[in-house]
Amino acid sequence: MIYISIFISAIHSKYEYNRVFIQNSKLNVNGTEYFIKGICYDPVPIGETKRNFEMIDKDLSLMKEAGINTIRVYSPIDEVKILDKIDKAGIKVIISFGYNQNGYYDILNNTYLEYVKKYKNHNAILLWELGNEYNYHPEWFNGNIDNWYNSMNSAANEIKKIDQNHPVSTAHGEIPDDKARKIGSNIDIWGINIYRWDDPSSFISEWEKVSNLPIYFSEAGSDSYMTKDFKDFKKGINEEAQAAANKTIINNVFKIRDKVAGILIFQFVDGLWKAGNPKIQDVGGWAPNSSGVPYDGTANEEFWGIVDIERNKKKTFEVIKELFKK
């Protein structure tokens, strides 16, 4: 009984300070203000269409080198050893729940609550995030986006019944309209996927006119392929254009860091599965509301990584490292 008591005490000691809350419109982790310097992370190996974490050790090493403190995933990580490695690296994770993922910790089937119960005390968890720019897809909700907003708001409420130690967010495409904000009253902090060329900071003045809730930029950035010439940036693979865009984006966000909870650059590694043959890197692909992607107004979906599929650093890696480590 003594050994059991000591073991339980050790577990409680490990997790009891894992508290994330919002204070003065900023994230606060265990009593310290926390500014997200993050990366979106969906590691799908070459030739495959589903993510796996076979490169997690290399990836975390590169993330630490770049000064990244937060990763955002698009589907829950149901592997304790992976979450433990993220935590050991000193990195937090934003866990996103999809609406209909065939029962895999999704909102439609209420299985997301099983995940919250299972991992709410894990030190790696920063936020619970509901959906990813679903506002662009009313067709997924019988043509009525209100169906999503109501499901989102209900899910946020259910999470709060289980876990009072982590805020609940959603990743919304651009500024939420009046309807989204009104129905989504249980959202604590809004994630904004934003592609306004190389300056997302204009969002803040618009947001302050309609809401006093905190926000973070859940996606921003640029890919490394130019579909056309633009100024000094030539058509084709162009790491210089990506590096220049990300540098300007991050600098502009840092100028308003008193009004935003952070930024996540899209994305860590190139995704060869998105636009064609997953064994090769294809030009093209499509993403909603992507005309603001710098510097060609096109989202070349397989070229967004700050490292390539083999984990070679692109030029933007060093830019992000310099800015995130300041």
Rank of each mutant, 00 (worst) to 15 (best):
M1E: 14
I2D: 15
Y3H: 13
Y17I: 13
Q23C: 07
N24M: 02
N24T: 01
L27Q: 00
I36W: 04
K37W: 11
Y41K: 10
D42N: 15
V44I: 06
P45S: 03
P45F: 01
G47T: 05
E48F: 09
K50S: 12
I56Y: 00
L60Q: 00
L60S: 02
L60P: 02
S61I: 14
M63G: 03
A66S: 09
I71Y: 04
S75H: 13
S75R: 13
S75Y: 10
I77K: 08
V80K: 14
I82R: 06
D84I: 08
D84T: 06
I86N: 00
K88A: 10
I94A: 01
G98P: 07
Y99V: 06
N100V: 08
Q101W: 09
N102I: 07
N109I: 11
T111P: 09
E114C: 11
E114F: 10
N123F: 08
I125M: 03
L127Q: 00
E129T: 07
N132F: 06
N132G: 07
Y134D: 15
Y134M: 15
Y134V: 11
N135W: 03
H137K: 14
P138S: 02
E139R: 08
G143M: 10
G143R: 10
I145G: 04
K161E: 12
N165M: 12
V168K: 06
G173W: 04
I175D: 08
P176S: 08
D178P: 15
K179S: 14
A180L: 10
G191K: 06
G191M: 07
N193M: 13
I194S: 15
R196M: 14
W197C: 15
S202K: 14
F203V: 12
F203R: 09
F203Q: 09
W207H: 04
E208I: 03
K209H: 06
K209W: 02
N212M: 08
L213N: 10
S218I: 07
S222P: 04
T227M: 15
D229R: 10
D229T: 12
G236D: 00
I237E: 04
N238W: 04
E239R: 08
Q242G: 06
Q242N: 05
A243P: 04
A244Q: 12
T248E: 13
I249N: 01
N252P: 11
R257W: 04
D258M: 01
K259F: 02
V260M: 09
A261R: 05
I263F: 11
I263W: 07
L264Q: 14
L264Y: 14
D270Q: 00
W273V: 01
K274A: 03
G276H: 05
N277W: 08
N277Y: 11
V283M: 03
G285K: 03
G285H: 04
W286H: 15
W286F: 15
A287D: 12
S290T: 10
T298H: 10
D308I: 06
I309E: 11
E310C: 12
E310G: 15
N312H: 11
N312A: 09
T316W: 08
T316G: 11
I320F: 04
E322S: 14
E322P: 10
